[in-house]
Nucleic acid binder design. Sequence first.
RNA 1: GCCCCCAUCGUCUAGAGGCCUAGGACACCACCCUUUCAAGGUGGAGAUCGCGGGUUCGAAUCCCGCUGGGGGUACCA
Length: 499
Amino acid sequence: MSEKPIRVRFAPSPTGDLHVGGARTALFNWLFARRHGGDFILRIEDTDQKRLVGQSIAGILESLSWLGLTWDEGPGVEGLHAPYFQSERLERYREHVDRLVREGAAYACFCSPERLTELREAQMARGVPPGYDRYCRSLTVEQIGELRAQGITPVIRFKMPDSGTTTVVDALRGEISYENRLLEDTVLMKSDGFPTYHLANVVDDHLMGISHVMRGEEWIPSAPLHLQLYRAFGWEPPALVHLPLILNPNGKGKLSKRQGAVGVLEYKQSGYVPEALINYLALVGWSYDHQREIFSVGDLIELFSLERVSPSPARFSFEKLAWMNQYYINHILTLDDVSRRCVPYLQAAGLVTEAAGEPDSAEFSYVRDVIALVKDRLKVLTEVAELTAFFFTEGTEDYEVASLVPRKTTPEVVLNALERARDSLGEADFDNEADLEERLRGLAEELGLKAGQLFMPIRVAVTGRTVSPGLFETLRVLGKDRSLVRLETAAGKLRNSTT
RNA sequence: GCCCCCAUCGUCUAGAGGCCUAGGACACCACCCUUUCAAGGUGGAGAUCGCGGGUUCGAAUCCCGCUGGGGGUACCA
């Protein structure tokens, strides 16, 4: 047992947005590093020029930052092993692959893509497993010279042993054995001078001193190749941990965007809080005990362990994540915190000004009073504008007159009730909820109405909607002036419609 | 086709031979609370632990086979 320092890495390929599956992999690596006082390295695997999506790097960095998954080395944090973009490390791969060729562990292959395709099709037609036939393995020096003279740039293939077995030790599953003769002579270096994943990954993991490779289960089949590469280089391989796959909610296939939002930034934009996403993601593939499932990031760092990571695939549940998000907003985050996070959405809707962003401004203080009333009803932060608009604007009167009139009442009864309510509230102390409640309950009784029959019209008059926070707290926060104006407006609408 | 992985309520899971008449959570249903909607509280329904063989005094837990699901099979990662 060597005492290598703990160093893990998250190595996304910038071909699109960071999706929750990738985020889960990043999270587990990050937790493992933080748990053991190790390093978490971010490395960008941009070796596929064709699939590269320029802006996706910025998106990946933003996603990780939003989730709080900070890296100790990587883009923007140049460490001992910089650069952290594989496209800037091309000489290293070249040197290493040359060494393999020199030592007879790899060879140049001049086969054209056309020949490869024909070969594959012929094999399929014959019902034989498709794969490279190792034609170029036995090329003579003269033949190689000739082909090079023709201007053909070869790829470099790994010379896989054709007998024996390669045993992969996966931390979650134990030993997995492969017969070498069924393994292929995989391409290590492409003809455009870029390495394939396999080469770049092995070289960098070694050069960067990675102790544990934690990646998705889809990599298990290429693990024997990687192990053979480590052996060919004479390096000690890192510990391998293949994390269980995340499946679509219906269990059909790897999680894909077909069935819902999978981009981390999509969740950010739709009003999810990062703490909830982290907590949910931690639970896909990992669990703590038979009952606890709410964990702060600190808890996770303290409690995370590979022993409790499951090897079996899990389906992604949008419902559970939504519940978790609401739970965090309702029960975990403080009022101040939620208020602060809501401000940008209120600003975007034009409901509050720049000043509301200042924690000690009067405007923020009002925002907080408002948020206090809706905090328990927020599922996502983005809902806040819709839910609280009436606290910030005067445009509340475009509701249907009919919604002022509850079942088993008449417009006349409601009109009278609203006028009486207006008169009574005109004398009320709006800072005192109990006073408001006492007056309105008394009024209901006096008018022979059920509480709801009086409260609903007032609610609609004051908020413009049939669903709102509690009536008395709403009146309190809204204040006397605005409340009375809105009651009068409602009364006016009723007068117009009854005559 | 070939190689590989996985297998407990609809879903995520606890369970590392007797504590399991299988526990928790989401979703679902009912009731309570109640001025609406949430939140909250209480209760309910829901798993013969995929199937079949073993091993054992005893198996959800160990072994084998089958079935099912998933992954891989590119000059993608």
